[in-house]
Design a protein around this nucleic acid. Structure first.
Length: 575
DNA sequence: GCCGTTTTCGGCCCGACTGTTTTCAGTCG
C-alpha cells in the first residue's frame, strides 16, 4: 500500500502535537507543522517520485532529518520517532487540545496536576470541581471547557463554501449599509476560493468601530459572542457559522485584507520577504522603522516588496510568490472566458427541467453552446435513457437547434464506466454522439491498480471524450477514488481526451492540485456545471474558483474555445 | 528542525483578546 502525502503530513502534524505537549522547542514544533503544510501542497505523491527513482526535488521546510523520516515512512509505513513519542504521551491528550482554550501548556498542566489523560478524565474533574483548584483555571475558563465538552464540538464542522455564502454574503451586505463603513470584504479561505471554509473572516474599513459593533448587536442572525474587542469581534450565527470581524481604518485596510485573506503560509512568506528588505508587515500596514509606507490597498502592500498584486486564489505559498517576483503570474481563467458547458442533465434522466428550459437558461448564462449529457440507463440510475429514448432526445436536439438563436446544443451522454472499464451503452449508439462523458458511479473502493486500469480501459474506448468528476469525491462524504491520476493524465494526453472539473459544490472535482497537474501535463480541462436544473449554471462560478486555485489559464480550458474549435477537438478524441 | 547576497549559529511572523492576573501567560488566527 503506497503511503500518501496526506498520511505523511498527518504523521508530522501528530509529531508536532506530541512535541508541543512535551514542551519542546517551539521552533522545532513549527518545523514539523511547516513540513506537513508543505507536503500537503505537493501536487505529486512523494512515494511515487521515490518509487520511480526520480531526483528528489527540494521541498521547502524539508531538511535532511525530515527527508529521512519521509523515506522511512514510505519504505516501512512506520515512523519510529512518532511511535516513541506516542509511548511517552497519553494518547487522549491530543484531542484535548482541540477544545477551545486548551493548548499544550494547559493540557500539560491538567496531566501533571490532576492526572487527566483524556476526555473522560477532563469531564470528571470538571464536574467534581477539582479543576477550580488548579492555578490558572478560573471560573470563565472552566465554564468554557464544560461548554465545549457538552457541545461535542459541532463548531469543528467545515462548511461547503457555497453553503457558507448563504449566510456570509447577507451579513457583508448588511455591514456595507452601516453608517461610517467604507468597505467590507469577506476574506479568509472564502476569498481564496477554497471548497470548504471553517469560519468566515470579514474585514471592515470604518470610521467608527463602535458603530460597527452596535450594528452587529442589532443583527438578529447572531446567536452568541465569543470575543468583543475594539478591533476584532468574534461571534456565531444562528446557522452555526462562526464569523470573525476585523475593523480597521482606510489607511491600513489593504494590509488587513491581505493579512486576513491568508493563507497563513503565504502571509508568513510575505512577512519574511519584508524582513529581508528591512521592512515590517503586519495587518496595519508596511513599516520602515516606525513609518507607515504602504497599506491602504493590497496592491501597495505587494508593491512595497516589488511584487505585482497576486490573485487571492493563488495565495497558498505554492510558488506564487516566486512567479510574481519573476513577473510570470498566470493570467487566470474567469467566468467570462467560458463559452460553453459540456455537461448538463434534463428531466429525461435525473434533471429537473426540460431540454428547452435548460437551453434557454444556458443562453441566459452567457453560453454559446451546451452539451446535453443525460445518464445512460444501464447504471441503475433513476430514469436513465435507453437507446430508444436516447434517439428521441437526439431528434429533439436537432429540432431545437433549428429554432434556437445564440446557442447550439451538442448531443452527449454521461455513460457509466463499469467495474471492468467497459462503457455501459452500445458502441453503435455512442458513435453517433458529439461527445461521450465517462464517469465512475459505483465500485468506488477498488484497489488503486484496479481502479486505474478500469479508468484507462474506459478512456481507451474509441468514443470516449471526457472523464467526468475524475476523483469521485463528495466533499465531507466520500473520499477520492484510489486512482493513479498522473498515469490517467499521461494516457489522456497521448490519446487525446480530456478531464472535467465538475462544478457541483459537493464535487469540485478536479480539485485545485489535480487541476495544476492536468495543466502541467497539457491535458485540457472541461469546466462543467453538471447542471441538474436551470439554476445550476450558477455553479460554474465555483468551478472557476477551483480552476483558478489550480492555476488554469483560459488556454488550459476546453470550453473557453469556440464551438467550431471544440467540435474539432472532440473529433480528435475519436480513435 | 530548517535555513542562509547580514550563513554554519542564531534566528525563526506578529498581534488581539481573554482570563487570571497585578504585569502577563496562553491561546488563537
Amino acid at each position: 500500500m503506497p503511503v500518501h502525502n496526506e498520511e505523511i503530513a498527518r504523521a508530522f502534524d501528530e509529531m508536532a502535537d506530541l512535541l508541543s505537549l512535551q514542551d519542546e522547542n517551539p521552533f522545532r514544533i513549527l518545523a514539523y507543522r511547516r513540513a506537513a503544510q508543505s507536503i500537503r501542497g505537493q501536487r505529486r505523491e512523494l512515494a511515487e517520485r521515490i518509487a520511480r527513482d526520480e531526483e528528489p526535488e527540494h521541498i521547502a521546510g524539508i531538511g535532511k532529518d525530515l527527508a529521512g523520516k519521509i523515506s522511512e515512512l514510505i519504505a516501512t509505513g512506520r515512523l519510529r520517532a512518532l511511535e516513541r513519542l506516542r509511548r511517552q504521551v497519553p494518547p487522549g491528550l491530543i484531542e484535548l487540545m482541540a477544545i477551545p482554550g486548551l493548548g499544550p501548556k494547559r493540557v500539560r498542566t491538567l496531566f501533571t496536576e490532576l492526572k487527566v489523560r483524556g476526555r473522560a478524565d477532563l469531564e470528571r474533574v470538571t464536574k467534581s470541581g477539582a479543576l477550580a483548584n488548579v492555578a490558572g483555571f478560573g471560573p470563565k475558563l472552566i465554564a468554557q471547557i464544560a461548554n465545549a465538552l457538552e457541545m461535542q464540538r459541532p463548531e469543528d464542522r467545515r462548511w461547503l463554501r457555497s453553503d457558507a455564502a448563504r449566510f456570509a454574503e447577507p451579513l457583508a451586505a448588511y455591514l456595507r449599509e452601516v453608517d461610517g463603513v467604507d468597505e467590507v470584504m469577506i476574506a479568509g479561505s472564502y476569498r481564496r476560493g477554497r471548497d470548504t471554509v471553517g469560519d468566515i473572516d470579514i474585514v471592515v474599513s470604518a470610521r467608527s468601530a463602535e458603530a460597527v459593533g452596535a450594528a452587529l448587536h442589532r443583527y438578529d442572525e447572531i446567536s452568541s459572542w465569543a470575543a468583543e474587542g475594539a478591533k476584532r469581534l468574534t461571534a456565531q450565527l444562528r446557522s452555526g457559522l462562526k464569523i470573525d470581524i476585523r475593523i480597521g481604518d482606510a489607511a491600513s485596510v489593504g494590509a488587513a485584507q491581505h493579512y486576513f485573506t491568508g493563507s497563513k503560509a503565504h502571509v508568513i512568506r510575505i512577512r519574511r520577504l519584508a524582513q529581508e528588505r528591512k521592512l515590517k508587515i503586519n495587518e496595519y500596514g508596511v513599516f520602515r522603522g516606525r513609518r507607515l509606507i504602504a497599506g491602504d490597498t493590497e496592491e501597495s502592500v505587494f508593491a512595497s516588496l516589488g511584487l505585482p498584486w497576486i490573485p487571492a486564489e493563488l495565495r497558498e505559498d505554492r510558488g506564487e510568490i516566486e512567479l510574481a517576483s519573476a513577473g510570470k503570474l498566470p493570467v487566470l481563467v474567469t467566468r467570462k472566458d467560458l463559452r460553453g458547458d459540456l455537461h448538463a442533465h434534463t428531466n429525461a434522466s435525473d434533471g429537473r427541467d426540460d431540454l428547452q428550459a435548460m437551453a434557454l437558461a444556458a443562453r441566459a448564462a452567457g453560453l454559446e453552446y451546451l452539451a446535453i449529457t443525460d445518464h445512460g440507463s444501464r447504471l441503475g440510475i433513476l430514469h436513465g435513457l435507453d437507446e430508444r429514448r436516447m434517439r428521441q432526445q437526439m431528434d429533439a436536439i436537432d429540432r431545437l437547434n433549428e429554432e434556437l438563436v445564440g446557442l447550439k446544443l451538442l448531443k452527449g451522454i454521461e455513460v457509466d464506466i463499469l467495474e471492468d472499464g467497459a462503457l455501459a451503452l452500445p458502441d453503435s449508439l455512442l458513435a453517433e454522439l458529439d461527445l461521450v462523458i465517462g464517469a465512475v458511479h459505483g465500485h468506488f473502493d477498488l484497489s488503486e491498480s484496479r481502479q486505474t486500469m478500469r479508468v484507462l480501459r474506459a478512456m481507451d474506448h474509441r468514443a470516449f471524450s471526457i472523464l467526468a468528476h475524475p476523483s469521485g469525491r463528495l466533499i465531507g462524504e466520500r473520499s477520492p477514488l484510489a486512482l493513479d491520476f498522473e498515469r490517467v493524465l499521461k494516457v489522456a494526453k497521448a490519446r487525446p481526451c480530456f478531464v472535467e472539473l465538475d462544478s457541483q459544490p459537493k464535487r469540485l472535482d478536479l480539485d485545485d492540485l489535480r487541476c495544476r497537474l492536468a495543466c502541467e501535463q497539457e491535458v485540457l480541462v472541461s469546466i462543467a456545471s453538471d447542471a441538474h436544473s436551470v439554476q445550476q449554471f450558477d455553479y460554474l462560478a465555483g468551478g472557476i474558483l477551483q480552476a483558478r486555485r489550480g492555476w488554469l489559464t483560459p488556454n488550459d480550458v476546453l470550453n473557453t474555445r469556440s464551438l467550431a474549435e471544440v467540435r474539432r477537438l472532440l473529433k480528435s478524441t475519436i480513435v
